[in-house]
Simulated scan of single mutants.
Amino acid sequence: MLLGAHVSTAGGCRNAPPRAAAIGASAIQVFTKQPNRWAEVEVVDDECSAFRSGIQEHGVVFANAHDSYLINLATADPILRERSYAAFVGELRRADRLGLHALVTHPGNATDGDLPRGLAQNAELIERALEEVRGTVAVLLETTAGSGKVIGSRFDELAEMIARINPATRDRVGVCVDTCHVYAAGYDLRGDYDGVVNQLADTVGLHKVGLFHLNDSATPFASRKDRHAAIGEGSLGDEPFRRLMTDTRFAHVPKVLETPKGDDSKDMVSLDLMNLARLRSYLRDGEPAP
């Protein structure tokens, strides 16, 4: 079971692996730059070497980055589109230099309300970026909660974006399923776990699921609000996570927490440990699903 959390890179990416070790993580997610600023950063050779060495030393098997929250590859604004594309390429380059397995990205916001244009443009820019930045880093389209004109709250939208990408690079594109987001978007993981997984299989395909973000929801079902809660303490409750942790179809898929962290480093560690312990308890208590 590849299990962990989003960990801080404060002070440099080299600090992430020891923080992973502090919570017993075999999978981690990081930011390679400040997610709410456009300013680009370069990860220098020493930083990359230290990060790669730390990953091996501390037993982290899977590591991914989440891209900047400012990036919108579906925007109708030509200036923001080019700025977003340049930032996305920068994210891919840093992920490649650090030896990360994947880059998670939000599918963006069709600011003009034209969903077909937004889907097509997002796929086109991702394809172009993958051609520009060769390597093995996968791009994982994250499921969204569905507020406003955001793309990616429906499985069929993610499937269409993937289908639009050239087969030569399509194998580097998959999805990241966020449990809070899909529940908020109207997929009832609590009341119909099997039905939701079947829909995912029929549209995207389970082989395209490259990562899970494990988050409970602080808002009710189908709220279309992205508000995370601690595992088992939100409107999703324990059962969907017990099913997911014991579902053999996803046993090989990395799973990371994005649950609330608290205000200081001690809180971050203790809260991550609490949530991870709860997830591991589902493995001990439950029988693997067929």
Rank of each mutant, 00 (worst) to 15 (best):
L2F: 14
L3V: 01
G4I: 05
A5K: 00
S8E: 11
S8Y: 12
S8N: 14
A20G: 12
G24P: 00
S26K: 10
Q29V: 03
Q29F: 04
V30K: 07
W38E: 02
W38R: 02
V43I: 15
V44W: 14
V44N: 14
V44C: 13
S53G: 15
Q56I: 10
Q56W: 07
H58C: 06
F62Y: 12
F62W: 13
A63F: 02
N64E: 13
H66K: 10
D67Y: 08
S68D: 11
N72M: 00
A76G: 13
A76W: 04
L80R: 10
L80A: 10
Y85K: 09
A87I: 10
A87P: 08
G90F: 00
G90T: 01
E91P: 07
E91I: 04
L92K: 09
L92S: 11
R93T: 14
D96R: 15
R97M: 08
L98M: 06
L98V: 10
L100F: 06
L103A: 02
T105H: 09
P107V: 05
A110V: 01
T111V: 05
T111H: 07
D112N: 10
D114I: 01
P116L: 09
R117K: 14
I126A: 06
I126N: 02
E127A: 12
A129E: 05
E131A: 15
R134Q: 14
V137K: 01
L140C: 03
G146T: 06
G148T: 12
I151K: 04
S153F: 11
R154T: 02
L158I: 11
L158H: 02
A159E: 08
A168H: 08
T169G: 02
G174R: 00
C180N: 06
Y183V: 01
Y183C: 06
Y183R: 06
Y183D: 07
A185F: 04
G186N: 10
Y187E: 01
Y193A: 03
G195Q: 09
A201V: 02
A201M: 08
G205P: 09
L206Q: 04
D216M: 13
S217R: 06
P220I: 09
P220C: 11
F221H: 05
F221W: 06
A229D: 11
S235V: 11
L236Q: 02
G237Q: 11
D238V: 01
E239Q: 12
R242G: 02
M245N: 00
D247V: 00
D247K: 00
T248A: 09
T248W: 03
H252D: 14
K255E: 09
L257I: 03
E258H: 07
T259Q: 01
P260E: 07
D263M: 14
K266A: 15
D272G: 03
D272C: 09
D272S: 11
M274H: 14
A277L: 09
R284M: 12
E287Q: 14
E287T: 15
P288C: 05
P288N: 08
A289E: 12
P290A: 15
P290F: 13
